[in-house]
């Protein structure tokens, strides 16, 4: 860190105090994660005998080999990819179509319908969960991929975002095409959609991340072990680990589950930050 000091600290004493505080907070951020990684690299028996052995050699990757060999974590990752991926793809399709419709086309009742959709933004998930759970019981959709994907598709956020984005595109573009007798769908598909790639990326990242990390709906809908998503699956193995002999193994499983999203974050950091903070302000 020494080489960076000149950049972050100014000369005054106050600056040094602030710098110290930021570094302290950075340690609080990173420390717990590093600690979990260290635990995941320790032999279980050694940890039981001496907890402090986490701070020194020998380390081993045995827990990771065990994770890959014995745990269900792969099938959970697979389920999460299907659910989050499917939800993202369908959200992009539905939101783009509806966004174009609300922004550019006219049909009876358009203004009223758009206001109703906007009001949908204010409805928290918990207000509809119980009724949704019943509906999915009627339809026999629990413990299925459609059952895990469909609820997220009702979110009004994507429609709102895409409508705003289509509205910001100059109208001359599609008017010219329509006067050339292109169909509405053709205009949407060929002329406007390619221009919305930044909004698609924002919405896609935000949707995928939300679905990947969702916990409540999978918890009540996917009750069979083979339909668990990663969040529910990991949670199901992690209770009562105070008594557990295999804390290193559990930590390896957790690192295994958390690493993909952190690696994706490292590469797409700028887009992810923009997507998440843009979505919050909406």
């Amino acid at each position: 860190m020494a080489s960076h000091n000149s950049e972050i600290i100014g000369r005054s004493f106050g600056d040094r105090v602030l710098f110290g505080l930021v570094i302290l907070l950075a340690l609080v951020m990173a420390g717990p994660v590093l600690y979990v990684i260290a635990l995941s690299l320790k032999d279980n028996k050694e940890l039981m005998v001496d907890p402090h052995s986490v701070f020194h050699m020998p380390y081993t990757i045995k827990n990771y080999i065990d994770t890959i060999g014995t745990s269900n974590v792969f099938s959970w990752v697979f389920n999460s990819i299907i659910v989050a991926g499917g939800l993202t793809v369908f959200t992009l399709i539905l939101s783009s179509l509806a966004g174009y419709g609300f922004a550019r086309l006219n049909f009876p009742g358009r203004a009223v319908l758009f206001v109703i959709v906007l009001l949908g933004l204010a409805v928290p998930e918990q207000a509809v969960l119980i009724a949704r759970h019943q509906i999915f019981s009627w339809l026999g959709l629990h413990n299925s991929y459609p059952g895990l994907i469909l609820p997220g598709l009702s979110s009004a956020f994507g429609v709102f975002l895409m409508t705003q984005y289509f509205r910001a595109i100059p109208k001359e573009l599609d008017e010219a095409a329509i006067l050339d007798n292109a169909s509405r769908f053709r205009v949407f598909w060929k002329v406007l959609l390619p221009l919305t790639v930044p909004a698609q990326a924002t919405l896609g990242i935000f949707t995928f991340l939300g679905a990947w990390n969702d916990y409540f709906w999978p918890l009540i809908s996917a009750t069979k072990k083979e339909m668990f998503t990663l969040t529910v699956g990991i949670a199901s193995t992690q209770m009562n680990f105070a008594q557990s002999q295999g804390i290193g193994f559990l930590m390896a499983q957790a690192v295994f589950a958390g690493a993909p999203i952190l690696i994706i974050y490292l590469f797409f950091q700028k887009y992810i930050v923009t997507a998440v903070s843009g979505a919050a302000v909406r």
Binding site: L94, A98, P108, V123, A127, I130, A131, I135, S154
Partner: peptide, 23 residues
């Protein structure tokens, strides 16, 4: 033109509006 918004509105009505009032 309604066809563009119909797919979303169907899901919106069945999985958000209806559950809200059913709840």
């Amino acid at each position: 033109n309604f066809l563009f918004v119909a797919p979303y509105l169907t899901i919106f009505a069945t999985l958000l509006v209806f559950p809200l009032f059913w709840g």
